[in-house]
Design a binder for these strands. Structure first.
Lengths: 166, 166
DNA sequence: TTTTTCTTTCAAAAAAAACTGAAAACATCC
DNA sequence: GGATGTTTTCAGTTTTTTTTGAAAGAAAAA
């Protein structure tokens, strides 16, 4: 396999993976491209490489920066912006956890709290309350586990977790 | 909040959560409906409750069964099928992990293996190989960690994980 | 066997999500 | 100040995903 074929395959696979997880294909592809790029790329480099429009590129680069997966890099004497990806996989995963926890787990916990205010004596209500309580317990545990995970350092997952868990 | 309001809110929130994670809204809503339903529901019950078409209901019920999140229940003397949700959250999460691992993590590992066959001495290639190696290492660790997790029993997560991790 | 009841399939329609491109905004240089 | 290079925005378009509904298929009942 040539380098170019390998790159293309990686970009395409990463894009597919992303889209299965509710991240848009282009965003994941830009991330992939930057991951395997030895130097920082400009918006134009990305546009050309992935054959996408300027608007699309801009929006998704911004989103990647918001997620903490890509950094802006300013080259001295250069007017335009360049971009580099965070290459440490643990940092990547950690940032994704932080974002999704904030955008999805925490709002869900708030909804579950509200749902505790449903009252009644009939079987339907009892059942409902019971299920909600279980989900809330589980979600809270997940929430605090993720907090602990986020605080753990870069090499912890790869190095220690397996030993602890065995 | 009345029971009906609570149910509606839960169904809608669960649907939104699902669609953020690449699971279609209707599938998540059917799951939510069954989760909070004290008895098994027929396809018609689901169609009526969620105001969806028969085809849509059927497809998503099948998908939920494939994922191991819903079971078919046959009532004696009844011709049509009834459905119940798996209510144990740990089982739910475990089944989702099993499915996504099989459909996404494992294929990605295979692609990463193929990508190891890219060869060359230049900086571009070195960099590419390095990044792929890192991702592969990380993914393999994730894969075996998830295997361990899947084997763990129902109460392990809620009961023990926090102590081990602290 | 024929009828009835229920389930599955799938082409077409609708809805949702993503993308484009051109114009506006912004920034730097002269 | 104006000219030039770069980024951002967003209405309209395209693409992708989801949903519908009607027809075909299956299984039980008559």
């Amino acid at each position: 396999m040539t380098l170019q074929e390998g790159k293309d395959k990686f970009i395409q696979s990463w894009g597919t993976l992303g889209s299965n997880w509710g991240i848009n294909r282009t965003m994941a592809q830009i991330h992939a491209l930057l991951l395997i790029s030895p130097e920082a790329l400009s918006a134009d480099d990305i546009i050309e490489e992935l054959k996408i429009s300027r608007g699309n590129a801009n929006m998704n680069i911004r989103a990647l920066i918001d997620w903490g997966l890509v950094y802006k890099e300013l080259k001295p004497g250069e007017r335009r912006e360049f971009f580099v990806a965070e290459k440490d996989m643990w940092e990547v995963v950690k940032n994704i956890i932080i974002q999704r926890k904030k955008k999805e787990l925490e709002p869900m916990l708030r909804v579950l709290d509200e749902l505790s205010s449903v009252e009644g004596e009939d079987e339907q209500t009892q059942m409902f309350t019971e299920v909600i309580k279980d989900i809330k317990l589980f979600s809270s545990k997940a929430d605090s586990t993720l907090d602990t995970l986020i605080k753990a350092d870069s090499n912890w997952f790869v190095g220690t977790f397996m030993k602890m868990i065995k």
